[in-house]
Design a binder for these strands. Structure first.
Lengths: 193, 193
DNA sequence: TGTACATCAGTGAACGCGCGTTCACTGATGTAC
DNA sequence: TGTACATCAGTGAACGCGCGTTCACTGATGTAC
C-alpha cells in the first residue's frame, strides 16, 4: 500500500471520478465526503489534501460529469460517420440513457438543483448548455436565428423528456415519452432545416 | 395563544403550506422539519402530532405543490376566455414564472430529484404529468396520436426550457431561451393542430 | 353559573446519527552524502 | 552501495453542528355535574 508522490494525482482522479458518477446518481447534495473517499479506497481525513473543500470538489465534479456525458453521447453518435440531429436525438432519448444516469447527461438529473445553486455552479452548467446548443446547430448544418431556435427547442425537449421519462414508473409509458419526443425533435428539424 | 381542537387543522394546513412552498424553493432534501415548524409558529416536537414522519409530509407537500402550480397557471391563462395552447405557453414560459419557483410549477424544479425518489413520490408526479398531458390535448382541441404527441412534446419542451432558463446567469440569455421555446411550441401546435 | 376533571395540541430536552472539517500522527518514499 | 534524514500522502480521533424522532410534560380548552 504505497503512497508515493506520483500516486497522489491518481488518488485525486479516483475521488473526482467517483464524485462525477455519484452526483449523477444521487444529486450534488446526496454525496458525502466520507462516501467518496471510501469508494476511492481512502479515509475521509485525506480529502483536504486533494480539495480545498467539499464545494470546490463539487464544481470540479460537475465539470467532469458534464464532459463525461457529452463524450458518452458523442461516442455513440460519432462512430462511423458524422454527427447528425438524428444520431444525437436517437442516442440521447434512448431507454439505455434513461436507465443509466450515472454515465449520461447531467443536465436532466442536476438541472433543477443547479437552477437554485451558487452562481459559480450555475456558470459551469450554463457554459455546457452553450456548447450543446452550438453542437446542435452544427448538426443541423445551418446557422442563423432558425438554427438557434431549433437548438434551444431541441435541447429543451430532450432534457425535459428525459426528466419526465425518469419520473414515470410504468415502463411502456416512459418509453413512449421518449419515442414521442424523439419524433417531435425530428419534425422540428424538418421545419427549421 | 390558544390551541383548541379546531385549531389543529389550521396548524396542519400552515405546516403543509410552508412545505409545499419551500420544496419548490430548495428541493425536497433542502427542507428540515424544524424549519417548517418554525415558519408555522410551532416548535419541532409537535410535528409528529400532524404527520407520521417527514417523508409522509413530503408526499402530501408534493401533491399540494403540484396542485398549487397548476392552479396558479390556470388562474393566469383562464381569466376571461377559454384555455388555449397559446395561453398556457405564454403563462408557463414567462420570466415571471421562472423568477418565482415558490408559487410555480414543481416539475422543472423537482423533476430531477423525483426521478430518483421512491416509487410513491414518483407516482405523485407521474399522475400530475398525465393530467397535464390531458389538459394540453384539450387545449389543442383535438384527440388522437398527433394530439398526444404534441402534448408530450410541448410539456417536455416547457419543463426543459424552464429548467435551462433558471440555470442561465445572464438575464437576456435566459429570457431568450424562454422566448425561443415559446415560439417552437406554437410552431409545433401548428404542425399538429 | 361554578367547580372538578379529562382531553389533547403544543413544548422543549434528549436520543443517536452522519455531516464537513481539523489536526497530530505514521510510515513509506525520495534525497543527500 | 549503504545509512541518515526530510518529505508528505494518507490515517483516524475529535470538533461542533443540525438532522429526524421520541417522550414526559404543561396548560388551555371542552365537558360533566
Amino acid at each position: 500500500m504505497g503512497h508515493s508522490r506520483a500516486e497522489k494525482a491518481e488518488s485525486r482522479r479516483r475521488i473526482l471520478d467517483a464524485a462525477a458518477t455519484r452526483i449523477r446518481e444521487v444529486g450534488l447534495d446526496g454525496v458525502s465526503v466520507n462516501e467518496l473517499m471510501q469508494s476511492a479506497n481512502l479515509t475521509h481525513g485525506g480529502f483536504y489534501g486533494h480539495f480545498e473543500s467539499r464545494s470546490h470538489l463539487m464544481v470540479a465534479a460537475l465539470e467532469q460529469a458534464l464532459a463525461d456525458g457529452e463524450t458518452a453521447s458523442a461516442a455513440h453518435t460519432g462512430k462511423r460517420g458524422s454527427i447528425t440531429v438524428k444520431s444525437i436525438v436517437n442516442s440521447y432519448l434512448s431507454p439505455a440513457h434513461r436507465d443509466n444516469p450515472a454515465t449520461g447527461c447531467a443536465i436532466p438529473t442536476l438541472g433543477g438543483e443547479i437552477g437554485r445553486a451558487d452562481p459559480e455552479i450555475r456558470a459551469v452548467m450554463a457554459e455546457q448548455l452553450r456548447r450543446s446548443f452550438k453542437t446542435m446547430e452544427e448538426a443541423l448544418g445551418q446557422t442563423g436565428p432558425d438554427a438557434k431556435q431549433f437548438a434551444v427547442a431541441a435541447w429543451s425537449m430532450m432534457v425535459g423528456a428525459m426528466m419526465i421519462s425518469r419520473v414515470m414508473a410504468d415502463d411502456s409509458e416512459a418509453d413512449r415519452v421518449l419515442a414521442l419526443a424523439r419524433k417531435s425533435v425530428l419534425d422540428l428539424a424538418e421545419t427549421y432545416g
